[in-house]
Design a protein around this nucleic acid. Structure first.
Lengths: 214, 214
DNA sequence: AAAATAATGTCAATTCATTGACATTCCCTT
DNA sequence: AAGGGAATGTCAATGAATTGACATTATTTT
């Protein structure tokens, strides 16, 4: 019954831990101390221990952490021990690329369908999956217990589509549309605002150039 | 000679301000108060004023902010008043999608080339741009004053490619490869780790389900 | 032209996140 | 089996970010 809220700052770091631990595991390394992990990942050992302790003790004093065990536990925290049914809304460049590029199944994401409202795309196959017309989306979500929708549609229609998804039982939205979706707080939204990210990059480039270095 | 370092927390919020101000501008709205913006964007008015004041006062007391002026100024801060030469490394699903999908030119990013090491792609046209062999990358970066490289290649080769870019004068890397690049601090790196983002989403979905609500 | 109003700029207070320090616990060796 | 060493778990201290409060200054109205 752990019920204290864990900050998103901590959560944001978990996937990175997970990635490094996965690599260590693949290298056959069995144990690691916060000190060693600290050196590899370039964060403080204190933060590592603090982060893990949010979820209870995963280590053994005097020994360190068992890599495989820790890897599994963090995976569980992130929900990667379960499967999630996923669909992609919008079969444009980005939607198709994500369908092909992300190795969804590897982490328990079952790619169940891809939708678009452009009739010339209907039936085209992406990863052995026919592109379906948008009209079928709502019933499909309901009948196939879809958990996650990936939104790769223009921002103008994003909110309307999001609400249709919500009304049919979606749990989370991975939002690539360039708007902030206005959905109930019970629906989890993870935004990937690519242009925002690129702007941060240019800020930092310019800052560095204008900084004391030149 | 403002020289105090501005926190990345503030920078991360600037693109979002920029987006909302752009929309307000398009709607023909000329002035706005931090109070009103606060209501629209769902952040505190205090934070808005604090954020803007990092860069000097953009508003007028008793009046508010001039939308267009503020929009322009934030654009300048983000470096969007200049042009940046950009190339894409890796013409796989994601690289091609970004080339087609991102409206780079709109914000001053000049799409100058796309590279891959798969000979069967050489010469294929993406946005009127032939895919070039990887071997030409280094000289191309040098000779065309490329500022930004978009890395959409497998993680195994990411570090090696990054260093070639660095050696030929790149200023920033927009990194979609699933590794933390080990480049000099003078090179700006903006990571887009898509699977990390998706894991955060599943964490939050599961957290909500297991929370007190069910 | 002067007073009233409105909203910024800024300082202080609070909250949140990170780091440092150390006692505790467990492993490993003798 | 017992003691030494090593690294966790945790608490306290520091530092950073956010919020709240208000004096200041510009605008607008009378």
């Amino acid at each position: 019954m752990e019920n204290k809220e864990i900050s998103q700052a901590v959560i944001s770091r978990l996937p990175r831990y997970f990635r490094y631990l996965g690599e260590l595991k693949d290298e056959g390394i069995e144990r690691i101390s916060s000190q060693e992990l600290s050196a590899i990942m370039d964060v403080t050992a204190s933060q590592i221990r603090q982060d893990f302790n949010n979820f209870g003790g995963f280590g053994q004093q005097g020994y360190g952490y068992k890599v495989e065990y820790l890897y599994e536990e963090i995976g569980k925290i992130l929900g990667l021990d379960r499967t999630h049914n996923l669909i992609i809304i919008g079969a444009g460049n980005l939607g198709q690329a994500l369908a092909n590029y992300m190795n969804f199944e590897r982490r328990g994401f079952l790619f169940k369908g891809i939708f678009d409202n452009n009739p010339s795309l209907y039936g085209k196959k992406i990863r052995d999956m026919e592109i379906r017309p948008m009209e079928e989306m709502e019933s499909f979500v309901r009948e196939n217990n879809i958990d996650i929708a990936v939104l790769t549609i223009p921002k103008t229609s994003a909110d309307a589509v999001a609400w249709k998804l919500v009304d049919n039982g979606i749990k989370g939205i991975w939002n690539f549309a360039h708007v902030d979706l206005d959905v109930p707080k019970s629906i989890q939204v993870e935004n990937v605002h690519l242009s925002d990210s690129l702007m941060k990059l240019t800020y930092n480039i310019n800052r560095f150039e204008q900084g004391c270095y030149s």
